[in-house]
Design a protein around this nucleic acid. Sequence first.
DNA 1: CCTATAGCCTGACGGC
DNA 2: TGCCGTCAGGCTATAG
Length: 263
Amino acid sequence: MPELPDVEEFKKYVDSTSLHKTIEKAKVKDTQVLENISAKKLEKELEANKLESTYRQGKYLFVKLSSGKYLLMHFGMTGKLKYFKDQKQEPEHTRLLLSFKNGYYLAYDNQRKLGKLGVVVNIDEYVKNKNLGPDVLDPDFDFKKFKQSAKGKKSMIKSFLMNQKIMSGIGNIYSDEILFQAKIHPKTKVNSLEENQLKKLFKFIKDVMQRSIDSRADPDNLPDSFIITHREKGEKCPGCGGKINKTTVSGRSAYYCPNCQKN
DNA sequence: CCTATAGCCTGACGGC
DNA sequence: TGCCGTCAGGCTATAG
């Protein structure tokens, strides 16, 4: 699930439930999601701290601790958060469980274990080491930078949009939406795009992401004119009424309208 | 340098 | 009912 709008939703979730509460106990329930840290160390870094504030870049969430360090969360395909009081409500695949002094819990749940948890001292350094590109909603990420990054790229536009080293936040679902809105076929080569197509793409990157955040990352709240709500082979295209098609781009399934997205 | 592909994990679903 | 293949909103290491 978690692309930029979803992680933004998680950020707001932490903000509204868990900030400024003391962590009494931290329990790592699965070590496979840990990034360069032992369970014991992570628990120690968390216990007796408060969660002070949250930062998001792309699909990464950083939660500042009173120690000054950050708890790093990445959600992979199936990660989510849950704040609850009754222990019976603990999610099935909880990988990290924080118990606050007020009796509530915050669980990091991740069925497929493709996400990451860690401790980060310096966000900029972490981002640099990961080679993570600018967040697509960052105002500094402007058309000039977008165009520059597209220069000479031979890859297909869908994988380009999803490449977190170039720009961060867009995943499989929202890349389909952006391409649908811009009326560009997912397999189009980046270096074959005209200036006006790049302009359109850039506009819809920002638009689709912002609208999805405004819709609280819930596809049910998105307009019927979006392809996300019709993302299944054979479904009706909200643009022309034709049939949605499915193909594969760099190992991921891409849904598009062959009539509206000719190239 | 670049881009494309297999592999990591678990569970849900559909066909036989 | 049971088994098997396929697929899932991500990322990384490796191959070409």
